[in-house]
């Protein structure tokens, strides 16, 4: 069976990390003393919002106003580091399958099966595809998707966000490059008189240029190391903030060695290039003009 069309609003909001999931039954928190209640697990956000704890008994109903069942909270679960869970405000309640079926009147129906193929654990990457194809060939009423295909489908949102972040990164790099060039130019220009004096006392152009480039490189190196430290601190703050906002262990930003290496390398290249550009301009100017005569 083809996948269900995306619901209207959820489709729109899928842009913000949302994918349609099963909406849980509503919960009314009325503690009482049941005879033999079934057990459920609730997520920690619901526990915090409704003031529930393990061992409490609550009434669980599929629709507002219906009597529902008395159930006991057996566990409190924490959200996984799943990007698709981020920004979902719904509370999650986990029930035993037969309990949910009876509560919602679904009979002996399920939404999906998860199947583990034999080849997968031994590293046979093609095994899930083969199993899915076999099921699709032979079984009535099912459509099997390998986990990789589901991952591609559910991660499409994040691929877009990634591309967006990369684009912002490109703009930031352009801005940083201009900033660094500008600062180097200013710093070198500030040294006009010193450079003029050095040239007047007989220092070769190449020596002066080397000194300028070395200075620009050192500034870029120190700046990029400080920048990496600042980036790391900013990343920690961002993670701390968003993990709090969305109540998820998901890490929103990562400062990897690769990223630090890229940033330092880029700064160094920009520092050297801007040092050469600014220095060449200066050493080509007549020394007397540089000292203001």
């Amino acid at each position: 069976m083809p996948p269900a069309p995306r619901p209207l609003l959820a489709g729109l909001l899928a842009g913000v990390l949302l994918l349609p999931t099963f909406r849980p039954a509503s919960v009314s928190a009325q503690v009482s003393t049941p005879a033999a209640p079934r057990t459920i697990a609730i997520d920690e956000r619901l526990a915090a919002a409704a003031g529930l704890a393990v061992g409490d008994t609550v009434r669980l109903a599929a629709t507002a106003g219906s009597p529902g069942d008395l159930v006991r909270i057996a566990a409190i679960t924490r959200r996984g580091a799943d990007p698709s869970e981020v920004a979902r405000n719904e509370f999650k309640v986990r029930l035993h399958l037969d309990h949910l079926q009876s509560l919602t009147g679904s009979g002996d129906r399920v939404g999906r099966f998860a199947v583990r193929s034999r080849g997968a654990p031994s590293g046979d990457a093609a095994a899930p595809d083969r199993v899915a194809a076999a099921i699709n060939q032979s079984a009535f009423g099912f459509r099997a998707y390998p986990a990789s295909a589901v991952a591609v489908e559910t991660s499409s949102t994040f691929r877009v966000v990634n591309r967006f972040h990369r684009a912002i990164g490109v703009i930031t790099i352009v801005a940083s490059a201009i900033f660094l060039l500008c600062i180097t130019l200013l710093k070198v220009d500030e040294r006009r008189r010193d450079v003029g004096a050095l040239r007047l006392i007989g220092c070769a152009r190449a020596t002066v240029l080397r000194a300028i480039v070395l200075e620009a490189t050192l500034v870029a190196l120190i700046g990029s190391i400080l920048g990496a430290a600042l980036g790391w601190a900013a990343s920690a703050i961002v993670n701390w903030y968003y993990q709090g906002v969305y109540q998820t262990p998901l890490r929103f930003t990562l400062v990897t060695p690769g990223i630090v290496g890229f940033a330092v390398a880029l700064s160094l290249v920009l520092g050297v290039v801007s040092g050469i550009l600014a220095g060449r301009r200066l050493v080509r100017t007549a020394p007397l003009e540089l000292v203001g005569r």
Binding site: G11, G15, S156, V160, R163
Partner: peptide, 20 residues
Amino acid sequence: VTARWLNGILATFPGLPAAF
């Protein structure tokens, strides 16, 4: 110009209304 570019990227979000 960059807004158009960035909008073009975000417009590829699955299920997004075309005119959004």
